[in-house]
Amino acid sequence: MTIAAIRLHHLVAPLPETIGNALIFFDRRETLLVEVVDSSGLSGWGETWAAPAAAAAIIEAHLARGVLRQDPAHLGRLWRGMCDAAGSDTQGTAMTAVAALDMAMHDLAARLQGVPLSTLLGGALRDRVPAYASGPFFKPDGHPYRDFEREAEGYLRAGFRAIKLRSGFRPADDAAMAIAIRRLMGAEGTLMLDFNQSYTPRAALAAAEAMGPAGLLWIEEPASPQDLAGYHMLSGQLRPALAGGETYGSAAEFKPFLDAACMDVLQPDIAICGGLSGVGRVVALAELYDRPVVPHVWGGTVNFHAALHLVATLPAHRAGGAVPFPFLEFDAGPNPLLDLAGRPVVNGDGTVSVPTGPGLGIEIRPEVLLPHTVSRREITA
């Protein structure tokens, strides 16, 4: 079988209310779904939520011709060819375009073999993955934490046993909220926190030091992604692990932080960091340094399920929490794009089951995309 067509679905889903974090607010969810179709009509799906219109343009202008008429089983060769076609943009939008195509070809290759994506990636080590609720989110026009306790209670009722809070408003308020959620969860719950690059390292240190009673497993993006000195300063003074890397486009961007021993949890996003082929290199690098990988997950159901399969294959790391790494990030905010193949289910033990069907294990019907589609293009051989 060879690749006969590439379909680009640019989706936008308005939200019932504006939400965000300490850095940005947004009133919609947006992503690019990439459908790779083989000569028999079978489809594989990929996604990138970062700059979807620009990624679509790059696929159409630079990447498609190197993929069409090719065998999707040749994943490594095709990935290298796409990276060459991307040129020097190894950390920007071109790599998000590569990521979406690579993800789709992995899904298609697994479907052609009749196996789950996790099998194609080397085999699942677990059939259920511990998930953490990524939320609550800030809201404008009032105190941003005003609904956090109520929403966190909802996550716990839904079955989650781990929560990652958005933070970075004011150090005293940040600490008070983290401690309040810890009381709500009890001692056995797993609690993480994301500053979303909102503070200088010194301000992040002040907030984090006041959060001691919250018993955080990790603190995410306590400084800007390229601030190696800031991460290094914080790593020497904070007890929780430091996490980051969701904006990185390649494994090479993680290495300086690993060499400096100041990033404990690596968070590549499959939709940004060159797809499953690119993140596979991050996984290999992490194993050399004995660090856990917890993929950042944003966008829609395709990226979610790609991460679910990947996490199922990752080695366990014990880091003092109630359960060992790895975890799956589960976007707990309003997100119609996560419902395109049915809302993923959280089991009673706080895990998500790994699909056993071919590829991603989900089916996306064209009519489900139509209400959210703002543009659709098809590129043929």
Score class of each variant (00 low, 15 high):
Ile3Ala: 07
Ile3Met: 06
Ala4Gln: 14
His9Gln: 05
His9Pro: 04
Leu15Ile: 10
Ala22Ile: 09
Asp27Glu: 14
Asp27Leu: 08
Arg29His: 10
Glu30Ser: 12
Gly46Val: 01
Ala53Met: 07
Ala53Cys: 06
Ala56Cys: 03
Ala57Gln: 15
His62Asn: 14
Ala64His: 06
Gly66Pro: 03
Val67Met: 08
Leu68Trp: 06
Gln70His: 10
Gly76Gln: 14
Arg80His: 15
Cys83Val: 14
Gly87Ile: 14
Ser88Ala: 15
Met95Asn: 09
Ala100Glu: 05
Leu121Met: 08
Ala124Asn: 00
Arg126Ala: 05
Arg126Pro: 04
Val129Gly: 03
Pro136Ser: 13
Phe137Pro: 01
Lys139Asn: 04
Gly142Ala: 12
His143Lys: 12
Phe160Glu: 07
Gly168Pro: 11
Ala175Phe: 13
Ala176Gly: 15
Ile179Thr: 10
Met185Cys: 12
Leu191Arg: 15
Met192Gly: 14
Asp194Trp: 12
Asp194Tyr: 12
Phe195Cys: 12
Gln197Tyr: 13
Ser198Phe: 13
Tyr199Leu: 03
Ala203Met: 07
Ala203Asp: 09
Ala208Val: 04
Leu216Cys: 05
Trp218Ile: 08
Trp218His: 08
Pro225Glu: 11
Ala241His: 13
Leu242Val: 08
Ala252Tyr: 09
Glu253Met: 11
Leu276Phe: 00
Arg281Met: 07
Val282Arg: 01
Asp290Cys: 10
Val293Thr: 03
Val297Cys: 10
Val297Arg: 00
Gly299Ser: 05
Thr301Ala: 02
Phe304Ser: 03
His309Ile: 00
Val311Trp: 02
Val323Lys: 04
Pro344Asp: 07
Gly348Ala: 12
Thr351Ser: 13
Val352Phe: 00
Val354Ser: 00
Pro355Ser: 02
Pro358Gly: 09
Ile364Gln: 05
Arg365Ser: 09
Val368Met: 06
Arg376Pro: 02
Ile379Leu: 15
Ile379Tyr: 10
Thr380Ser: 12
